[in-house]
Each structure stands twice: as C-alpha cells, then as structure tokens.
Design a protein around this nucleic acid. Structure first.
Length: 582
RNA sequence: GCCGAAGUAGCUCAGAGGUAGAGCAGCUCACUCGUAAUGAGCAGGUCGGGGGUUCAAUUCCCCCCUUCGGCUCCA
C-alpha cells in the first residue's frame, strides 16, 4: 500500500501527465492549422514534457516555434472543449483513411478492441486512449524545446518523421524551476567540466570517439585503476593481460565474426587477417586452456583492465559516455554449475560495496532467453533460475526484461543512479554457455570425467571512460578527496613565504598527498577564486603568521575553515581520507 | 547510419560579399597584497577542410570532417 503522501504525489504526477498529453494534442492542432498537409503520428507525455511526431515534407525548424506557440496560445484562449467519443473500429478507420492519416490507420489496425476512443477539440480529432483535460483553457504554461528526427515506430527501417519536443507545467513558477534545473544539469555536463577542469579532450585530428586524457584526467583514471586492482586482488581475482589484435580465425571460432563483425575493426599482417578486440574474453579463454584444469581449481577469476575498440555509429558518440576505444574492468570467471549461485552472489556483493563507496544507488534487471539463442534449454532455465534466486535471496527488487539476454546466456544489468537521479548502465553480469562449448573448455571432475565449465563475463565499473564521465556529473566535478587529482593547493600571501611553502609542498608530496602550489604574485582572493573554480578540496593559506607558528589556515572547498592547524595534523587528516576513500 | 542545428583567438562569444572584434586566459611591467577576479601595456586568427560562383568569399552554393539535440544501437 502506498503511503498517503505518496498517493498525493502520484496524483500530482498523473495530473501533470494529463496536462502534458493535452498540450501535445494542442500542439498537433496548432501545427495542423498552420501547416496544411502535415500528417500526425504519435504524441505522448514523457518525463520531461511531451512530444509529437509529424510527417511533413519540408520538416520543421526551431524558427517555426514562435508561430506554433502563438497559435497554441490562441487555442488556449478559445477554451475549446476536449470531447471523448467511443466509435467502432471500422468507422474510425474510415474516418482517418479519408483524412489521409496513414499513421493513425496503422495504429488502429493494430488495436484488437472493437471500439476505439477519439478525442476531438474543434477541427482536430485524434486517436487516443486519454485521459485528457476537459478543455484547452485548462492547459497551463508550455514551451517548445527542440526538433529531432525520429523513426516511425522507433524502427530505423521506417520513414523518419519530425519530432517536436516541448514541456508544460501548471504554472510559470514550475516551468521556470524546471528550466533552471536544466541549466544546473548543463553545468554538470562532463564534457563542459572535462574542459573546465582540464581532464580530457577529444580531437577531430585524432579521430571521433577517441579520448585523450590530460594530466588530471589521467591521474583520476589512475586512481580508479589502482582502486580496481586492489579490490580485485582482495576478492580472489588474478591479473591477466592479452593482446589487442588476435587472428581473425579466433573471432570466427568464437562467433564474434558472425555476430559482431559490424562493430569490429580489422587489419592484415604479412597477409594474415587479424581483428582488433572488441571484447577481452578470448585471451582469458586461452589462459584457461593453457593447461589441464581440475574441479578443485575452480572458480578461476581472470581480471584485466582490457582496452577494446568498437565501431560505434558516428551519431551515437557522446563525450566519455559513448566512445570507440575504451577500457573495461573486465573479468571472466570459469566455474562449475554448482558454484554459479555463490559466485554471482560474490559479484553482487562486490558491486554493492563499490556502489556504496561512490555513493550511487542502483537498480537491477534480469534479461532472459531471446528467441535466437544457443545452448540447451535446460542450461538456460537453470541459469535464469540462479540469477533470480540470488536477487531474491538479497531481498532486492529487480525488473525482468523478457527475451533481452545475450544470445549466449542470460544476464543481470545494474543501472546506477547518480546524484540527480539519472540512470546509467555500468555493471553487468552475463552467463555464457557458448564460448566454453566453442573452445571446448573442460575441467576434470571428481569422478575423473571431463566436464564443461560455465563462464561468467562481468564488469563492475563497466568502461572506465563511461564511469569517469558519470562520476564527473555525479559529483559535479567536486570529487571526494581520495579521487581528487589535486587535493591541496598551497598559497602564499607574499614573496616572503615562497621558499617556506615550497618545502611544505615537498613534505606533503612525500607523504603521498597530491599538492599544487600557487606562488603567483597575486592577491589571495584571486588565488582562492582560482582554487574554487578548479574545485580543489583544500586551499592552504600561508602568511606571515602561519610561517611563524608553523601552522596553516585551510579553506575547505565544501564549506568551513581549519584555522591555524598544525601541518602534521593536516597531512594525517588527508592521509586518512585517502585510506577511507572519502 | 538517419533527421535537424552549429563550427570565428587557448576558452566563451559578437560580426559582415571588400581579406576580422570583445571578455577571460597568456606574456611584460607596476603593486607585496589575508579567503571568489589590482591596474596598465603587448601579443594572439589560412573565420573546421576541400571544391565552385564572383573583380573580390570567412560571408553565397556543393561535398567532406567534427560537435550539439534527437532516433536507432550500446560499456
């Protein structure tokens, strides 16, 4: 049962959805008034507002928005009743056919009920399940936001329509609040912060989707890698390293050439074909196969910060979140069927611990057997059962994506939620029955017979590039001390303290702190400002007084001040934060 | 890949058929300064790349590349 206040929230949300849905119809009505010959497709409310898809030959641009919005405002003022009517399917079909609304006809044909509901406002009638507001006069404030192409029914084989996005709210204040929120989100954009904090760049001279890490970005990445290596060693993983290119025959054997070729790059050496790896599993399989394995050896957990190259379509590249070369915290675990439950539990605990350290909440999904699959039904059912049991056993909620598993096995996807509620796919755990089969992997069981191991593919952070991008936005560039590329910046007030702060910097660096020095001949307020802009956690100020007392004054990025603290105590404080990952 | 928009100094942006401008950053000088921008001066650009139209193109046209907003796909 929902709590009373939740019910209220649900009601408010439901109302907002109706408002937006009606605004979407209003926009369609305005567009049809203004642009004769336009055909309408679908126009739902969405999380951030609404959209409507149109088929119109010249298409629309944002220049058309003012005109459309003006007409919408007129229609609101006219306070036109929005009338619902149930009609027979055949009648609706005839009506939309006559009107030349081919998309509506297609939609109605797919409806099984004998009757469909229509909503009419003046000269505009739309097929719609509803509900809607009672009249256009009840519509609040709205704003058209962007145009975009969208395939009919989301299928890239279909015609591309023009989609107009907009948003709507009951009043101006809530619209303003939303637009302000959008601005805040822009300020957190990892591409913007990546530039401002000088973390990374991508260059069209080098190539699209290829990341160049600058010193601070590379340091951040190094800190994550260091974290990963320690955590994996702690959990019984072994490090392995494989090559970036493997003979094409390997990729044919594994099925990648057949199923993943479009995403791969190829090259030729001395007339032999090679494929650049899009995944790390094959080398790990070679390690497994390098000697005979006993049931006592399992599970074997091979870990690699493996860099892979994938040919992503040009239109999907996006900062660090979607690139063409990236490094996964990848592991392949070879184990017996009877170990599957415990091992997946281990991984889930691993994921949980890591998410907690970075202060992420997360959600889980199980993806089950697709229509096209390899392996036996029995294996699939068993594995799906195990995945469910593990999640049930933890008492954590999860969704099921029927038929969305990989062709070689079912999987658990973990979607993390960042500081402002957005979801990102990072960790995933995939069962694989296919590769052990294709590479004829086996172990010798207690009865002396050869048995086939199960293979798990899993990543925890996912791709370092994507994870770093998410981290930047999650923290808004204000990394916790242990992850800050620069933890401390020391500022002198006059030249007099310069040699002193230099030796202080050296002392801190030798204790493992990451320290910068600002000895520019500038006012303190400028140095503080620059330190704040660079989002450095600790700004250490040294003037005449501090030098005499061998203390420092520390301005803390996230608020507050450490007045006249001993250098030694400050160093210990930062060291502890490094250790505790704070 | 598809639809739409954009690309001007290191960054953020203005400009216009007659070969470009601001702020910040950079450099030089003065100021030696106590918690979010001291002042003055200097320097900085084949106006994304390639073709075309024109007496003349950074501006108009075509192609390409890249980026942005979406669609589709995904770590």
């Amino acid at each position: 049962m929902a709590e009373p206040h939740e019910e209220k929230e649900d009601q408010a949300e439901a109302h907002l959805n109706i408002l937006r849905h009606s605004t979407s119809h209003l926009m369609a009505q305005a567009v049809k008034d203004l642009f004769p010959g336009v055909k309408v497709a679908i126009g739902p409310s969405i999380e951030t507002g609404f959209y409507y898809d149109f088929d119109y030959e010249p298409g629309f641009t944002e220049d058309d928005f003012a005109k459309i919005e003006a007409r919408m405002t007129e229609l609101v003022k006219m306070d036109i009743p929005i009338v619902r009517k149930m009609v027979k399917k055949e009648d609706a079909l005839e009506m939309f056919r006559k009107a030349g609304e081919a998309y509506k006809v297609e939609l109605i044909e797919a409806i099984e009920d004998p009757e469909v509901s229509l909503y009419t406002q003046d000269n505009f009638t739309d097929l719609c399940r509803g509900p809607h507001l009672a009249s256009t006069g009840q519509i609040g404030v709205f704003k058209l936001l962007s145009v975009a192409g969208a395939y009919w029914r989301g299928d890239e084989k279909n015609k591309m329509l023009t989609r107009i996005y907009g948003t709507a709210f009951p009043n101006q204040d809530s619209l303003d609040a939303y637009l302000k929120f959008v601005e805040e989100v822009k300020k957190r954009d990892h591409r913007r912060l990546g530039k401002e904090l000088d973390l990374f760049s991508v260059s069209d001279e080098v190539g699209a989707g290829l990341v160049i890490y600058h010193p601070n970005g590379a340091l951040l990445r190094y800190l994550l890698e260091d974290f990963e290596r320690k955590e994996h060693l702690k959990r019984g993983y072994q490090f392995v390293v494989g090559p970036h290119i493997l003979k094409l025959d390997m990729w044919k054997k594994s099925g990648h050439y057949e199923n993943y070729r479009d995403n791969m790059y190829f090259t030729k050496i001395d007339d032999v074909d090679y494929g650049i790896k899009p995944m790390n599993c094959l080398s790990h399989i070679m390690v497994y196969r390098s000697t005979i394995r006993s049931y006592r050896d399992l599970p074997l957990r091979y870990f690699e910060l493996g860099t892979v190259c994938r040919h992503e379509k040009s239109g999907v590249l996006h900062g660090l979140l979607r690139v063409r070369e990236f490094t996964q915290d990848d592991a392949h675990i070879f184990l017996r069927q009877d170990q599957l439950h415990q091992e997946i539990l281990n991984i889930m605990e691993f994921v949980h611990d890591v998410m907690e350290i970075f202060d992420f909440k997360y959600e889980m999904e199980i993806s089950t057997r697709p229509d096209k699959y390899i392996g036996t039904l029995e294996d699939w059912n068993k594995a799906e059962q195990v995945l469910k049991e593990v999640l049930d056993g933890q008492g954590l909620p999860y969704d099921i994506n029927e038929g969305d598993g990989a062709f070689y096995g079912p999987k658990i996807d973990i979607k993390l939620k960042d500081a402002i509620g957005r979801k990102w796919q990072c960790a995933t755990i995939q069962c694989d029955f296919a590769l052990p089969e294709r590479f004829d992997l086996y172990y010798v069981d207690s009865d002396g017979k050869r048995k086939r191991p199960v293979m798990l593919h899993r990543v925890v952070l996912g791709a370092l590039e994507r994870f770093i991008g998410v981290l930047i936005e999650h923290y808004g560039g204000r990394f916790p001390v242990w992850l800050s590329p620069v933890q401390v910046i020391i500022m002198n007030i006059t030249d007099e303290q310069e040699p002193y702060v230099r030796s202080m910097r050296d002392a801190m660096v030798s204790e493992g702190l990451r320290v910068e020095l600002d000895t520019r001949n500038e006012k303190l307020s400028l140095k503080i400002r620059d330190g704040m802009v660079k989002k450095i956690p600790y700004m250490v100020v040294v003037g005449k007084k501090e030098m005499a007392n061998e203390t420092i004054s520390v301005r803390v990025r996230d608020g507050g001040e450490l007045k006249d603290i001993a250098v030694r105590d400050f160093i210990e404080r930062v060291k502890e934060e490094n250790l505790l990952r704070r």
